[in-house]
Amino acid sequence: MNYFSTVISLLRDRNEFLEEIHNGVKLKSKISALMISSFCFFAVYGAIIGTFHSPLQAASSAIKLPALYLITLLVCLPTLYIFNVLFGAKQTITQHFTYLLTAVSVIALLLCGFAPVTLFFLITVNDYSFFLLLNVIIFTLTGILGVSFLYQIMRPVADGENGQGVKVRTSILRFWLCLYGFVGSQLGWTLRPFFGSPGQFELFRPREGSFFSGVWNALINLLS
């Protein structure tokens, strides 16, 4: 089981890791390892936030949180690939997928880094709104860091091609990152609850409103 060593090699020598993806070296192994390790990291953090409510919620969140990130990635991947290829990118869909999985694995690792902090507040604070907002901040922070990492690694480089194609692809990447955030937040809203509000366990909540209206309501609840 050397799946986690792939993530460690990503952390230790990022440039070499990215160079390997660029050259298409061992992509299958990288995809397998990144997928399994990011799933494990997300599942651990999901289980921690679900523990706020009940063990049943912990099990539910341990599946839902990896689903949120990995399904968002799969939903948005074709858009990025097709648009990039249309404007001159030479990388394959497997390379695109590996780059995106790398960024998602970084987000998963960052979340795991916050796990002790979340666990601390889980034990010491018993306020649903506070816990929800704390996690919105953590998810936003890790999301921004992950997305900026993705922007850095996927930013097109002019390898002897005309500058126009590179410019267009950079714009596509920016647009795609917004799309990724938008799809991710709405999927998160669809899959909720991740924390489980006080009361009976719910597998899913009824479809209502959107992610942004939910955050606004939580802020108002905290301040009132």
């Binding site: 997928m35 799933f39 599942a43 599946i63 839902k64 990896p66 990995l70 399904i71 899959l191």
Partner: peptide, 9 residues
């Protein structure tokens, strides 16, 4: 478990 994630939808 990963399959469960992708069959969740």
């Amino acid at each position: 478990l990963l399959s469960c994630v992708f069959t969740l939808p």
